[in-house]
Computed example of a mutant assay.
Amino acid sequence: MSLRYTPENITSLDRDEIFVFGSNLQGLHHGGAARVAHERFGAIMGQGVGLQGQSYAIPTMQGGVETIKPYVDDFIELAREWDQTTFLVTRIGCGIAGFTDEQIAPLFAEALKLYNVVLPKSFVDVIRKQENK
């Protein structure tokens, strides 16, 4: 199976695509991918979680990785239900929030099995490496 990876810089989306980005619980989309989501893809200032416009916010600024996991799990459930929509996941948590790919990528291991979720290559590499241990 040939995998598709999330592009480094997403500047436009098709009608059936959603931009998945890391946010803060307050929904202050001032930097990084959150800013792009707000400026280009309908992220709503003040909404830090979930679907908004053509974007989906996963909070990453409220604590450790264990506090991010429930939000990623909720996202994966939505992606399973919305199987006609393609979700382009950015390197959530790996910018302003300060986490590494090795910390965040494993949260998306189940998403790798979904044909409609596109992950960054760095996340896929980490997940595959862990699967082969």
Rank of each mutant, 00 (worst) to 15 (best):
M1A: 15
M1L: 14
R4H: 12
Y5H: 07
Y5Q: 02
P7W: 02
I10E: 06
I10R: 02
S12T: 14
S12M: 11
L13P: 04
L13H: 05
L13K: 07
D14C: 13
E17D: 12
F19K: 01
V20R: 00
F21D: 01
F21M: 09
G22Q: 04
G22N: 02
S23Y: 02
N24F: 07
N24S: 09
L25M: 14
Q26S: 15
H29A: 08
H30N: 15
G32A: 08
A33C: 13
A33H: 06
A34Q: 03
R35A: 12
A37T: 05
H38E: 12
H38S: 10
E39Y: 12
R40Y: 14
A43E: 03
A43C: 08
I44M: 12
M45F: 15
M45D: 11
G46D: 09
G46N: 10
G48A: 08
G48W: 02
V49L: 14
L51Q: 13
L51Y: 12
L51R: 15
Q52G: 05
Q54W: 10
S55T: 06
T60A: 04
M61N: 13
Q62D: 14
G63H: 09
G63L: 10
T67Y: 10
K69H: 11
P70G: 06
P70L: 12
Y71L: 08
Y71F: 15
D73I: 13
D73R: 14
D74Y: 07
D74A: 15
D74P: 00
F75M: 09
I76P: 02
E77C: 11
E77I: 14
L78D: 10
A79M: 10
R80F: 06
R80P: 05
W82F: 12
Q84E: 15
T85L: 09
T85D: 09
T86E: 12
T86G: 09
F87M: 09
F87N: 01
L88Q: 01
L88C: 03
T90I: 03
G93L: 04
C94T: 02
G95T: 05
G95K: 04
I96Q: 09
A97Y: 05
G98S: 08
G98H: 10
G98L: 07
F99G: 00
F99M: 04
F99H: 03
F99K: 01
T100N: 04
E102I: 03
I104K: 02
P106G: 03
L107E: 00
L107I: 08
F108S: 01
A109P: 03
A109I: 06
E110C: 07
A111I: 07
K113E: 15
L114F: 05
V117R: 00
V118W: 04
V118C: 12
V118L: 10
L119I: 04
L119C: 04
K121L: 06
S122V: 10
V124C: 06
I127Q: 01
R128E: 15
Q130E: 13
Q130Y: 02
E131T: 06
N132H: 13
K133P: 00
